[in-house]
Simulated assay, not measured.
Amino acid sequence: MRYVALLRGINVGGKNKLPMALLRDALGKTSFYGVTTYIQSGNIVFNSDLKSAQCADIIRDLLKAEFDLAIPVIVKKQEVISDILKANPFKTRTIENSKFMSFGFLNESPAQEKVKVTEEFSNDMETFKIVDNVIYFYCGVGFGKTKMTNAWFEKKLGVTSTMRNYNTTLKLTEL
């Protein structure tokens, strides 16, 4: 099975430094194969015969043991990432300007009452839809200007999230 692992908070603002070459080497010593990384923000694509939860545990344990990093790891089948792109409710806007589209990958589906309350903050320029364990977020004001950050979504929804922009998400389906 081909998987995508998304590490939260890697190489951001000088925190949680993790060279991708060292990570690839360490993962090469596990049961994973065909391991590749994409850019410096903690994106791993690999093959494994294990279930996604087992893969997440292996990566989380490896990050702690080898790099002394205790960070969230979200693992999804690569085909699920493709399905998420296809299900994007903001496809028309994304085609017009993909730099304003991102996806929040959640470690679990948030409680529906929290989703309902959070979605009340959605507006024309910062619009989002939460479906199962994914946030589809079209941010027309730009991600540097919004108050709806990854941390904001985590606080509102009570779950762990890691965000990826449209181009990164698309690339992860192609590797």
Rank of each mutant, 00 (worst) to 15 (best):
M101C: 09
S41E: 01
P19D: 04
I59K: 04
A70E: 15
L18G: 07
K17H: 13
I59Y: 02
L106G: 00
K51C: 11
P19Q: 03
V75R: 08
M20K: 00
K64G: 08
P19N: 10
K91R: 12
K76W: 09
L106V: 03
F46R: 06
A26G: 08
L23C: 02
P19R: 02
K15T: 15
G13W: 11
I74N: 04
K64F: 13
S102L: 13
E96L: 04
K29N: 12
Y38R: 09
N97L: 10
A56H: 07
I84P: 04
I39V: 09
L23A: 05
Q112T: 12
A111R: 09
I95F: 14
S98A: 13
I95Y: 10
A87D: 07
D57M: 13
E66C: 06
S109Y: 06
N47S: 15
S82I: 02
D57L: 14
N47V: 15
T30Y: 01
N43P: 02
M20L: 03
S98I: 10
D83T: 15
F46A: 09
F32S: 08
K76M: 15
K77S: 14
L50P: 11
V73G: 07
D25W: 07
L69N: 09
N43T: 00
A111L: 13
L22Q: 13
T94A: 07
D68F: 09
Q40W: 05
T94R: 00
L18K: 10
L63Y: 05
K17D: 09
Q78R: 15
S109L: 12
F46Y: 04
M101E: 13
I59N: 04
K15W: 12
Q54I: 11
S102T: 10
I44F: 03
L85H: 01
K29M: 14
T30D: 04
E96A: 05
Q78I: 10
E108R: 14
S102P: 03
M20H: 01
K15M: 15
A21P: 01
P89M: 05
V73Q: 06
V45N: 06
L22S: 14
L27R: 02
I81M: 09
L63V: 04
I84W: 06
T94M: 05
Q78W: 13
Y33C: 11
L18I: 10
E108Y: 09
S82C: 05
I74T: 03
S48L: 07
V45C: 12
T92M: 07
K99Y: 10
F90V: 01
V80D: 12
I81T: 08
I58R: 02
N43V: 01
P110V: 07
L50W: 14
E66M: 11
Q112F: 11
V35P: 00
S48D: 07
S52L: 13
Y38Q: 06
A65Q: 07
P19E: 00
L63H: 04
